Simulated assay, not measured.
Amino acid sequence: MNNVRHRTGAGFAYQRGLYGFGIGIAVLDSGIYPHPDFNSPDNRIRVFRDFVNYRETPYDDNGHGTHIAGIISGNGYLSKGRYMGMAPKSHLIILKILDHHGNGTAETVCRAIEWTVRHQARFHIRIMNISIGAKANQLTVENRMLTDAVEYAWDHGLIVVAAAGNNGPSLGSITSPGTSRKVITVGAAPEIFSPAGQKSSCIFSGRGPTKNCICKPEILAPGFQICSCGNHKEHPYTIRSGTSMASPVVSGGIALILDQYPDLTNKEVKRCLLKSARPLNYPKSYQGWGLFHIPECLDGRCDSP
């Protein structure tokens, strides 16, 4: 996470005292393990809702959701800040929609999204992170349900951030609901390995365009070998790769932007992200507008979106 924060310029926000305080982020995933990085010194797991097994206390029988939440909002308590997430003072609304295998249904996702929309004012939810995806570019009932659900959330003011999926590098491999025209779809950025300085193109990252010729993803963020919170006391941190990891980087970064510009609408946030992205000289079907970079968002790009 140190590298992630460096590449996205998050330190620029921290220098201004922006840590995402008061920003609620809904995470639709496999749940959350009550890791010290979320509950020490204060508990920032504001809500836990289980749409799979209907348990009442936070748990994560897969680990994916805990990793995502750590990238967004972990405060690095156990690692002395090394694995701190992007917005360590934001609070989490955790909606468990995936089982212990990491599988779920469109119906469950839709119920969780509807619940989030109904409770967004009560829990100050501004952002919804969805690091899941159905099969790429297939016009199925499931895909239509997912797309309609995230657009329902977007139309009710939520900033919806979705993963591009890991079905790349072929064209048209964006997974649903990342195919939605409205939401912010995030791909995994190429990584630079030292000391040799070789680049990895993160070939797994989903590419556009969609069947409706929409340019996707809009933006890239680090998503390769990200160390974040684990779901076992004996292994408090774990490494994962994928666009699932890139999406929460952007979700957490948006919380920092909202900390400075709390009145921005979801459309204004999206416009700001695209204006401030750093092109990486890759095809637009892979990189969209470029790499997510926070300083430009905070230094005038969001004043007049």
Rank of each mutant, 00 (worst) to 15 (best):
N2F: 03
V4R: 00
G11D: 14
Y14A: 01
F21M: 08
F21W: 06
I25H: 07
D37R: 06
R46S: 11
F48R: 02
F48A: 01
R49K: 15
F51Q: 03
V52N: 10
N53M: 12
R55M: 06
T57Q: 07
D60V: 04
G65V: 01
T66I: 04
H67C: 07
N75D: 12
G76E: 03
G76V: 00
L78K: 13
A87V: 05
K89N: 10
S90K: 08
L92A: 00
L95K: 13
I97C: 01
L98K: 07
G104T: 02
T105P: 00
V109K: 04
A112Q: 09
W115E: 08
W115P: 02
V117M: 09
V117P: 08
Q120A: 08
A121L: 08
I127M: 08
M128F: 07
N129G: 06
I132Q: 13
K135C: 02
L139M: 12
L139T: 03
L146M: 14
E151T: 12
W154C: 02
H156N: 15
H156Y: 15
G157T: 10
I159E: 02
I159G: 02
V160I: 13
V161G: 08
V161S: 06
G168E: 13
S170I: 14
G172Q: 06
G172H: 14
G172S: 07
S173Y: 09
I174Q: 04
T175Y: 09
T175K: 06
S176L: 11
G178Y: 11
S180D: 14
S180G: 13
R181C: 07
K182M: 14
V186N: 12
G187V: 01
G187P: 11
A188Q: 10
E191W: 07
F193Q: 12
A196V: 13
A196N: 12
F204R: 10
G208H: 05
P209C: 04
K211D: 09
C213R: 13
I214K: 02
K216C: 07
L220M: 14
A221T: 11
A221E: 10
P222S: 11
G223A: 06
F224Q: 15
F224H: 13
C229K: 04
K233Q: 15
H235E: 15
T238L: 10
G242C: 05
G252Q: 01
G252I: 08
G252D: 06
G253C: 03
I254F: 03
N266V: 05
N266D: 03
E268N: 09
L274D: 00
P279A: 03
P279S: 07
P279T: 03
P279R: 08
G288E: 02
W289R: 13
L291N: 03
E296G: 12
C297M: 14
L298E: 09
R301N: 11
R301A: 13
S304P: 00
